[in-house]
């Protein structure tokens, strides 16, 4: 069973994604702040990381930078899931090594799950 790490400070969203992704057959681990998320990425070695950018303790950009600097985590694909939509934020995240950048309000839950499946190679398309 593939493992997804969800780093997001809104517990409501975490619960929503846990239920949605478990229904799709994925195992999901969650972190409510950047520091905990980084530690979980290093210890649990997930197959994919869903990362918010506005996070307490360590923001998403810093988490992404450290993930890509660490040889143990740099190959893990990272999908940014955020409400920040400035071009400068999108460019910065992609330059730091994010695989995909999704602005939350522009995607339905189904579309986000499709992106996740495609990144993990589980897409039926």
């Amino acid at each position: 069973m593939k493992k997804i790490l969800f780093i997001e400070d809104e517990s409501v969203l975490q619960k929503t994604f846990e239920k949605a992704l478990r229904a799709e057959g994925y195992d999901i681990i969650s972190a409510l702040d950047g520091e905990t998320g980084l530690k979980l990425a290093q210890t649990q070695k997930p197959d994919l990381i869903l990362l918010d950018l506005i996070l307490p303790r360590l923001n998403g950009f810093e988490v992404l930078k450290k993930l890509k600097e660490d040889p143990q985590t740099k190959e893990i694909p990272v999908i940014i899931l955020t409400n920040l939509e400035r071009m400068s934020d999108i460019d910065k995240a992609l330059e730091l090594g994010a695989t995909t950048y999704l602005v939350k309000v522009n995607y339905s839950l189904e579309e986000v799950i499709k992106k996740i499946k495609k990144t993990l190679g589980d897409s039926e398309e």
Binding site: E10, V12, L13, T16, F17, K19, A20, I54, T82, N83, L84, K104, V105, S108, L109, E110, V112
Partner: peptide, 16 residues
């Protein structure tokens, strides 16, 4: 960011 965050949550909960 703060004004849009609740809408993403609402939308996805309804989708689910």
């Amino acid at each position: 960011h703060q004004l849009r965050a609740p809408f993403a949550n609402l939308k996805w909960i309804i989708d689910l």
